[in-house]
Write a protein that binds this DNA or RNA. Structure first.
Lengths: 343, 343
DNA sequence: CTGTTAGCGCATTCAT
DNA sequence: ATGAATGCGCTAACAG
């Protein structure tokens, strides 16, 4: 059942060498220090015994765990799994293991998780959490832990970050509906204490301005969370204003779904009465009625890029922090159409 | 920047005790062995220095990593994140950390991941992977690693498992449409080399039989994967047969979505011409047109239960393997209705 | 109740 | 090219 695990010493004994030699032979980095044939003997002995190096012991000795903490708000949000996959795949290539946790964007949870991760001697952190107020991460960063932020950044640029160009994304959305002929364009904004919510709101103002369109304050409504019900509430507020908007850019897909609900409640239809654009291009969003036009973000690439940045820092501690901006794109579907002209 | 980390020895020195005493004072389990006031002194010293126990060193000494490997086919499949959350939350309460990996149901990937996890000295494994053929897990089980299977089980019952009662789930679906008056009921089955696909197919045959309904072989079509396109293909095959089915039970929601496509391609509508039932009750499936009737699986509970079973084994090695069957339920929405009676 | 001693498995000096 | 010695940080067994 549970045989005593095979250790380096066992391998060394079978190969009739000193454990130190076995260690050198087994480690690709140091194999050249060992004579070819003895190295071979060690390898064979290891294979025969089914030797599996004890990563824990190695970490204790080398002070590198080859593990990375990954902080995610909530894996149930379909936005994150692809990012996590990207991180996992890239880290895996480099021999690193991710420790994935959900923080629910809760400062306490986040702090506890960071604490246990540091106790587990993670070599670095990748954080996709989005609080702008309280921030346990900043402490870890200050303590010298290599960190890469995802979808957000620190004001002072002291920490590496990979973000999507939210402003450009919103600009794509606004330009699209403007190009269809819409002039009264509303915005169902996300919560402003979340970085994406805030940036997309700013992006909306900018984009409208750049196109020479006026932003009616009544055409902008803020939601308290990225949920359908919040989206519906905010959208209803926008729809109440006259003359009514003919297009709404939502700060994300779930808010956009809420917009669908609000339209339905008003007896309006999309895109005939109001065009809707979402953000994120969630899985299955193309199966809504109507299929949602949405800004696509390169989620997997976000993950691989973040891992890449972190690996660079882990490999070379002198690597300076870098901020990368990834490009979104627009996926046009059936929720947007030219505005109806009064008969 | 990177101060030398605070060790137990530092704490002991400040508290003017031996490191072993400090260790005892810091560990809740052994604190009672230390006099109240000295324990207090140690705690204060630890707090003052910001001591953080080195989990790696502890693991090496105690031979317990307090970590658990979690093998998931693919986090992008919305079925799994809730399960993972359940696992994470329950394990976390007990002081365990999950190591989550995606296997893509690929035997090689799975084997590699298991290998690195064992090298990292995980105390046990939770596996939600579903291959019925090749199986790297069995080896680990044989080697004495505590394992809990999710959504599948070994034939011999030698390993703990928590599964959903697929047969009952399908039975709920079949009974529902039968209760609406349907008699010609089809099944878009999943791949038969995946446990859920196979069990749901058997469940369909059983349920039909139990209701005294005949299974026309032409009303059953097997898909090669749980995807929309496969579902559409399989569904088209079923629809081709005359007299046409009036209801279809799909082996999961994505296949059901494919059924929607196939119906649309035939100019048929749901539920007027054909009722459709899915399985899993995926997020946002209620927002399809029509909202899909589906068998709901208690995903989070699957996770917590699996964690519970594993913790029991970790706490007491003599704990025998147990197989738990969780109950699904039916969520009725608008994709099912009584069959149309010919005018 | 506390100090002493020892060693978990490994990688890295330093000798030879 | 290999062996010997040492210690990463911690906890368990044994004294006292």
């Amino acid at each position: 059942m549970a045989d005593p695990p095979v250790t380096l010493k066992d391998v060394a004994a079978l190969a009739r060498v000193h454990p130190a030699t076995a260690s050198r032979a087994l480690n690709p980095e140091t194999r050249l220090l060992v004579r070819e044939d003895t190295a071979q003997r060690v390898l064979e002995a290891a294979a025969e015994l089914g030797y599996r190096p004890n990563t824990v012991a190695r970490s204790l000795r080398t002070r590198r765990s080859h593990s990375v903490g990954v902080l995610i708000p909530d894996l149930n949000n379909p936005l994150f799994p692809p990012i996590v996959r990207g991180i996992e795949d890239r880290l895996g290539e480099a021999g690193y293991t991710p420790l994935i946790v959900n923080t629910d964007n809760d400062a306490d949870r986040e702090r506890r998780h960071i604490e246990t991760m540091l106790a587990r001697q993670v070599d670095g952190l990748i954080a996709a959490t989005a609080r702008l107020d309280v921030d346990p991460l900043a402490e870890a960063a200050a303590a010298g832990t290599p960190i890469v932020l995802v979808n957000r950044s620190f004001e002072d640029g002291s920490v590496s970050a990979v973000t999507v160009d939210d402003r450009q994304g919103i600009s794509l959305a606004v330009s699209h509906v403007a190009g269809l002929g819409h002039r009264r364009i509303g915005h169902v904004a996300g919560p402003q204490n979340v970085s994406t919510g805030h940036r997309r709101y700013l992006g909306f103002l900018e984009a409208m301005d750049a196109l020479g369109l006026d932003v009616e304050l009544e055409y902008v409504s803020f939601s308290a969370a990225f949920t359908e019900t919040e989206g519906a509430t905010a959208c209803a507020a926008v729809l109440a204003h006259r003359p009514r908007v003919t297009a709404i850019v939502a700060a994300n897909d779930r808010l956009a779904m809420g917009c669908y609900d609000a339209l339905a409640a008003e007896g309006l239809s999309c895109p005939e009465d109001v065009s809707i654009v979402g953000f994120n291009d969630m899985p299955f969003i193309d199966r809504l009625r109507p299929p949602l036009t949405s800004v696509r973000v390169p989620q997997r690439e976000i993950g691989t890029t973040a891992a890449e940045l972190l690996l660079a820092q882990l490999t070379d501690a002198s690597e300076p922090p870098r901020e990368l901006l990834l490009e979104p794109s627009l996926v046009v579907r059936a929720s947007t159409a030219p505005p109806a002209t009064p008969p």
